[in-house]
């Protein structure tokens, strides 16, 4: 197990290295940052001085190594627009996205898996057909449209929930969170629902397919022969048998939602990293873009590692026993 962890950590480091090179080439080496950094009417001397100070006169590989060195020290530079260290800026926005993404993926999983298991257990029932219709909608209706409809329905017409923004937060561990108060939750609900629709559809499909397959196995037949109730079989046997793909998708979806909740955050004016990155792209705030991309890569690598390790918890055959009989 320890060997496995070390091996995965080395792989993770390699992925991060490759990602840093891509980000560097993509954002720093292409185009001319100097045009963005200093005003167009600066004199030639000021311009030359800035180029030297930023190291832009050095060969590409030296610039990359310097960039890498700064990254390793946690120095992502300073935002052009906000004039504060990029890392602080992103970390101030990350909790908002984190709780939004987590809420969305949790709703999708906790609602989607039971629905999908039922749809797989009774595939021909009208309820199962209705569930599958919902999942088709979840896949095919664009997120931005659903977001607008949600706002129109629940915020504008019914006036039950706020239309956007994050509302009040409660400070815990020096970070503001919305989900701890009822009012905060009311702000969180609509964007989380909006984001969760696609995940819901995915979880329904995944657990339906897994359940249909599991119901045909001798394991389920044997459990039936032992007189177990179908409900017990679904809860104790089937759910465990289908848990590995579900955990995998949970992890991947959490990662991609954290990174790409952009559309929803924009529609609901949710002050998360997705909105930050869109703003920084429009204002050509390069350090923010770089830091964001590197952090996203880091996030995915970490989530994948956690998912891999959780397999061993879910499937005893993947554990290596020192003293197995």
């Amino acid at each position: 197990m320890l060997g496995f962890v070390i091996q995965r950590l080395l792989q993770a480091a390699l992925v991060m290295l490759a990602m840093s090179a891509l980000v560097f080439v993509g954002v720093y080496a292409i185009g001319n940052p100097i045009d963005v950094l200093i005003s167009p009417d600066a004199t030639q001397d000021i311009r030359a001085e800035a180029i030297r100070r930023l190291g832009l006169d050095l060969p590409l590989w030296q610039q990359y190594l310097a960039f890498l060195g700064r990254l390793l020290r946690g120095d992502f530079g300073t935002s052009f627009v906000f004039g504060m260290p990029v890392l602080d800026l992103i970390l101030s926005r990350l909790p908002a996205t984190l709780e939004l993404a987590l809420a969305a993926v949790l709703i999708g999983t906790l609602v989607g898996v039971p629905l999908g298991v039922y749809a797989g257990y009774r595939p021909d029932s009208p309820v199962a057909r209705a569930i599958m219709a919902v999942s088709v909608l979840g896949f095919s209706v664009p997120t931005f449209w659903v977001g607008l409809i949600l706002i129109l329905t629940f915020a504008v017409n019914l006036d039950w929930l706020p239309a956007g923004d994050r509302g009040p937060t409660v400070q815990v561990l020096g970070i503001g969170w919305s989900f701890l108060t009822l009012e905060g939750l009311s702000f969180l609900l609509l964007p989380a629902l909006n984001l969760s629709l696609f995940k819901l559809a995915m979880m329904i499909r995944l657990s339906r397919a897994g359940t249909r397959e599991a119901m045909l196995t001798d394991t389920v037949k044997f459990a039936r022969a032992a007189g177990l109730k179908d409900r017990t079989i679904l809860r104790r046997h089937v759910l465990r048998l289908i848990s590995i793909p579900i955990v995998t998708v949970f992890g991947l979806e959490l990662g991609s939602t954290l990174a790409f909740a952009v559309v929803t955050e924009t529609i609901f004016s949710w002050p998360g990293v997705g909105k930050l990155i869109i703003d920084s792209i429009t204002s050509l705030d390069r350090p923010v873009m770089v830091a964001y991309l590197v952090l996203v890569a880091f996030l995915f690598v970490t989530i994948n590692l956690v998912v891999d390790l959780s397999y061993a918890l879910l499937d005893p055959r993947l554990r290596r026993h020192g003293a197995a009989a």
Partner: peptide
Amino acid sequence: MRALRGRRIAMVFQDPQATLNPVLT
């Protein structure tokens, strides 16, 4: 019928590899 199965009539299958659930003790 369910209440009868396993209590008064039990069944053993061909392949124990397939009948026992691999992820439960």
